[in-house]
Design a protein around this nucleic acid. Sequence first.
DNA 1: GCCGTTTTCGGCCCGACTGTTTTCAGTCG
Length: 569
Amino acid sequence: MNKKIIIKTLEKIALYLELQGENPFKVSAFRKAAAALEGDQRSLNEMEDITQIKGIGKGTAAVINELIETGESTQLKELEEKTPKGLVPLMKLPGLGGKKLAKLYQELGIDSVESLRAACLAKEVQKLAGFGAKTEEKILKELEHLGERSERHPIWQLEMIVIEINELLSNIKEVQKYSVAGSFRRVNETSKDLDFIVATDLREKVKERLLTDLAIQEVVADGDTKVSIVLDIDDPVNVDFRLVTLDEYATCLHHFTGSKDHNVKMRQLAKQQGKKISEYGVEQPDGTVQTFKSEEEFFAHFDLPFIPPTIRENGQELERLDEISQLVTLDDIVTDLHMHTTWSDGAHSIQEMGKALIERGYTHGVITDHSQFLKVANGLTPERLLRQRQEIYAFNDDHPQFRLYAGTEMDILPNGSLDFDNDVLKSLDFVIASIHSSFTQSQDKIMERLWTAIQNPYVHMIAHPTGRVIGERDGYNPDIPQLIKWASEYGKILELNANPYRLDLCVEHLKLAMEYNVPIAINTDAHAIDQLRFMDVGTKYAQKAWVKKELVVNTWSTEKFETFIRKNK
DNA sequence: GCCGTTTTCGGCCCGACTGTTTTCAGTCG
């Protein structure tokens, strides 16, 4: 029995219980059990007594054991029989939860999108206690848009919106402090909406500016401390603003950064000390409310180190406090090993990129333009590569405190061969091997191609190992555990491509790479200077996999890096 | 349904907003 199926089943039971209008604590007990199972690193076989796991008791253990033994769950079956399938999609309608849907089903027999719409049109819904004309209208409106709006937005879409909103907030003089919060701040691959925390003494003024200066499709909520809007763009995004005082800012930022699980764990911790955490501060045993200047101060109040937003996920972060100081941060990064210039498909020259790296405080960098196979990207022939190398080394003559290396992002061709022969590769400082073509080949064929690159002595790194684009395509489906084993064996670097379209390797794969001590390079793959900013996203994403700085090649000194790249020459 | 170094019963994180009410339930994050 697959652990994932058990987790899914527990979550399904929770959903159906919710649709029955069941006790919310019972519902969340099933969700907690699912989360507990997911958070446990062990496989099913390694668990002796599952009720030993916190959150799994008699009831949920019975479901799990039945699944293991028979592959089915009687409880889920009964729930599925009792609850019409058509109710499930209705849970997605904003404003409708389990209780209300249960009532609609029990009183009006509503069990589908169609019957709900018909009941609203017949004005039957507003007759129910707890419902009214406004609710009915709202349901009709939401039914029209059901399935139209994306449920989750990819990080690359949100990143651009966040830059714009940050720009707006920085230009409102009544705003004292602001930050994005929520799952975007935790650097999740996708988010349902965006949250911003804004410190101000003049809420009304700030609200006015937000409501006039943003392109708004709909104002969802407009309260004292919360403004919630839908942006009027191609793929509409919901944005919430929380307006608080400067005193409340730190706890509010913490609260709305989440995750929910992290907050619950923090509140339980506070409760043990007779304290109470809310978004407005920490209520002390004597009833006074303490506020903090920063999240650092807030954590220190509970004798905790600063816990980066990226790892505030499942409560595990509170048990791995010792490891936090070893995690890679942007401050540790001294180089970028993958970027393009006007020699291939980049927007800036070698001079411009080199200077931009120096401005970022880096000690070295590698120019890695595309190779000849990639004609659409103006890939370099060996002859052009030679000329480019002269220009790179000329840059070094003018900037003795910095070191720019000559590299390539070489294609691994569809037939499994490499785009340059060994003589060319040998003459370069740093060689990246990448797949940019024939994504639909079988896994065996893809692995054959990667194998060629791995066992070539002059290849240093495999870039964006899966070729995925978040929310768009899955990539070429390599056997990543195998690739990680090869990388470990042959001393190759695997990339974490920091471009928010890619974030490749993903968290799960990075964790596995850590187990095998495979060096990771976090690279922006910048095709223009402003894309060097992706290093921030990349390092934060790496934290999500608990990537330690020693294994991140970008933290190595120029000397250590040179030793590594020259070892096979 | 789960949990317990005050508890085997009575809590379960806490608060905002909306729409329905006329003090509150449901939903949401």
